[in-house]
Design a protein around this nucleic acid. Structure first.
Lengths: 237, 237
DNA sequence: CGGCTCATGTAAAAGCCGTTCACATGAGCT
DNA sequence: AGCTCATGTGAACGGCTTTTACATGAGCCG
């Protein structure tokens, strides 16, 4: 936390100087505490130390603020996924799993962003730039699926890469939204969401012909027989 | 639509006679139109033709109304899933897929229920009876997973049935909540959500050692070699 | 430096919603 | 017939969203 005049409380001229940013920050705080429904425009204004009408100089209405947050969320999300994917290093499957973990980490650590992005109830077609940001983030998953598809054993029937990407996305989102957030969490689970998703993805990949019992440092050496070993699921704890 | 005094408009004594039910109906209408956030208590009262204070004779507050709807939703959901599962007839895998389709059908055809159940932002621990209803619905999926697990080829590593159930649930919920509702739908898709989920589940099951290229009328005959055939994905349309 | 202008903030008000409270009504029982 | 209590009403409070007219002062131009 480090704006110029802290918390907008004390000496602050007629003009705030950084209100737009302050409102976005305040909204993030409030959404993470009370969900996107519980957040109010007036609260954000109060938290920034301005009158309830001030935010309208920066956002057409409450929805536009939420959309801005969602947009910013998708950008951070894209950057996080890009980093996790790391262009498929050290090997495709490892990187792919890292993407799944990054997905859950984002949902867990940035619940406010995640809610704004996926649970705000905004019409996705209304905001072209928002939809574009969302698609850029999905493009990472899609690119990863593409690489994965190219690597799948031949002779197996194989779905289009787009479909694989959608599958992975739906698994990740399903786990995240049912079990993802620790704080105002949804349901209780005999294991961590991360473990749940990892096992799910590994089984799915095995269904595509990948051998997932263990992975070497590089993709090239990845061709041992299917294992009779432990599998991706630990003890239920 | 068939209450006693239609729409509460015309001659209606001081007492409504069926207000609780009318409010639930009205709320369902409104939620399906504007989402659980856009729904207002006052609107429901107006639609039932009573004063804004009347609903408080039947629900402690707005949240309790939504919780009632979620509860009712879980009950219908449970009944639908039970019917779809049909105790595993004619064979386990077929019945299992039917459950997945029923899941999506519910999300699509009862978006108001689905929203109230999964997207209302209600604290799930606050309503013990609601949570119980939710768990009864999940128990169907869990029972189906149990049967499926028993059928999985031995020699394969196999996750606990509970985990399988959670996997299936997360896939279904992920697809439903990302692509499920046709009306105020979320994202565009090159295929139907049903096809997407079916392929996803089939690949997952194959990852557990099931042969899913084609299914016979009964589970007993289900032991042909893995197919090199078309697979669960059609043309992308 | 003086003055203009326009982005940015304020105050006030209208309209809506959730919620509460005292009060009205009349359905059903005795 | 009369009582009672569940059910509905009206009015009121505070809070939220959004609009409108007005205030402020930062940045620019001469």
């Amino acid at each position: 936390m480090s704006w110029r005049k802290d918390q907008g409380r004390a000496e602050r001229g007629y003009h705030h100087g950084n209100l737009k940013e302050a409102l976005l920050q305040a909204a993030l705080d409030l959404i993470s505490k009370k969900g996107p429904a519980g957040f109010t425009f007036a609260d954000a204004a109060r938290m920034a130390g301005v009158s309830p009408a001030a935010p309208y100089r920066h956002f057409r209405d409450r929805d536009e603020l939420i959309a801005s947050i969602a947009q910013r969320g998708f950008e951070q999300f894209e950057s996080l996924l890009t980093q996790a994917w790391d262009d498929g290093r050290p090997d495709t499957v490892t990187a792919f799993e890292r993407v799944g973990k990054a997905y859950l980490a984002f949902a867990r650590e940035e619940p406010a962003f995640y809610s704004a992005m996926f649970e705000s109830g905004l019409p996705p077609d209304a905001n072209p730039t928002l939809m574009a940001a969302s698609e850029r983030a999905f493009a990472i998953i899609r690119a990863a699926a593409e690489r994965l598809a190219a690597l799948a054993p031949p002779g197996m029937p194989r779905p289009p890469a787009m479909m694989m990407a959608l599958h992975i996305w739906s698994m990740s989102h399903g786990v995240a939204s049912l079990f993802g957030r620790g704080d105002a969490a949804r349901r209780k689970l005999p294991m961590s969401p991360e473990d749940l998703l990892e096992a799910e993805v590994l089984i799915y990949l095995r269904g595509l012909g990948f051998r997932t019992d263990q992975r070497p440092g590089t993709a090239a050496a990845d061709d041992k027989p299917a294992g009779e070993k432990a599998g991706p699921w630990g003890k239920p704890k």
